Simulated scan of single mutants.
Amino acid sequence: MSTPGLGHVVQAVVSSIDEDNLEEGIDKLRALFPDTTLLAALDLVDRESVLKFRTPWGGCHYEVLGSTATYSVFPRLGWSPDMSCYCTCPAFAFAVLMSESHLMCKHVLAVHLAEQFSKCVEHSIDDNDLLARLTSRVQ
């Protein structure tokens, strides 16, 4: 991300949204994201396309079912001040990493929103299955 810390602003805005102030929260997100990204993220949440895999050791892995592929999403990278999230989709590589024109892609935003609204489709996964899922994304 071109501006360190904005990922935390997005997370704070998303965390402040609840059913009582949904419209106000969406308006705040419109100040941070293009309408196309915001509407696409909300659509992914509505279609229950955000998958959350819980590991036996308490970790989580997220995947988002896109229109053409399934993408691995890492919504909170604590190790880098310049990049607070990551997605394996081409839009993230181009719009976030290369051109720095977006804070995050629709898939990362969808994960944040799905978590806030308790709309993740949850599954349990063991370490071998998680490894298989992750390695299948890079082949």
Rank of each mutant, 00 (worst) to 15 (best):
S2H: 05
S2I: 10
G5P: 01
G5Q: 03
G7C: 07
H8E: 07
V9K: 06
V9N: 04
V9Y: 12
Q11T: 09
Q11A: 09
V13G: 10
V13R: 00
V13M: 06
V13Q: 08
V13K: 01
V13E: 00
V14Q: 13
V14K: 05
S15T: 01
S15M: 01
D18G: 04
D18Y: 12
E19T: 07
E19R: 04
N21E: 03
N21Y: 01
L22D: 01
G25R: 09
G25N: 08
D27A: 14
K28F: 03
L32E: 11
F33R: 10
F33V: 05
F33D: 03
D35K: 06
T36E: 11
T37M: 03
L38N: 10
L39D: 02
L39R: 04
A40V: 08
L42W: 05
L42S: 14
V45T: 00
V45A: 06
D46V: 09
R47I: 10
E48L: 06
S49Y: 07
V50L: 09
V50F: 14
R54W: 06
R54A: 03
T55H: 04
T55D: 04
P56V: 06
G58K: 05
C60L: 07
C60W: 05
C60R: 13
H61G: 09
H61F: 07
Y62H: 00
Y62E: 04
E63I: 06
L65I: 13
G66H: 10
G66A: 10
T68A: 15
T68M: 09
T68N: 11
T68P: 11
A69I: 15
A69D: 13
Y71D: 15
S72L: 08
S72Q: 14
F74W: 09
P75E: 08
R76Y: 12
L77H: 13
L77A: 01
G78L: 07
G78D: 08
P81L: 10
M83R: 03
S84E: 14
C85W: 01
C85D: 10
Y86R: 12
Y86D: 11
T88N: 04
T88V: 14
C89N: 14
P90Y: 01
P90C: 08
F92L: 00
F92E: 05
F94R: 06
A95V: 03
L97G: 14
L97R: 14
M98P: 05
S99F: 15
S99N: 07
E100V: 11
H102N: 02
H102A: 12
L103H: 10
L103V: 15
L103M: 14
L103T: 12
L103Q: 13
M104A: 10
M104V: 05
M104K: 12
C105N: 07
C105Q: 02
K106A: 12
H107L: 14
H107P: 15
V108A: 01
V108G: 02
V108R: 10
V108S: 05
A110V: 14
H112E: 11
L113S: 05
A114P: 14
E115Y: 03
Q116P: 07
Q116R: 15
F117N: 02
F117Y: 01
F117K: 02
S118F: 08
V121Q: 14
H123P: 06
S124T: 12
S124G: 12
I125F: 13
D126P: 03
D127L: 02
D129C: 06
L130F: 13
L130I: 09
L131H: 11
L131D: 11
A132Y: 00
S136D: 01
V138C: 10
V138R: 15
V138S: 12
V138W: 09
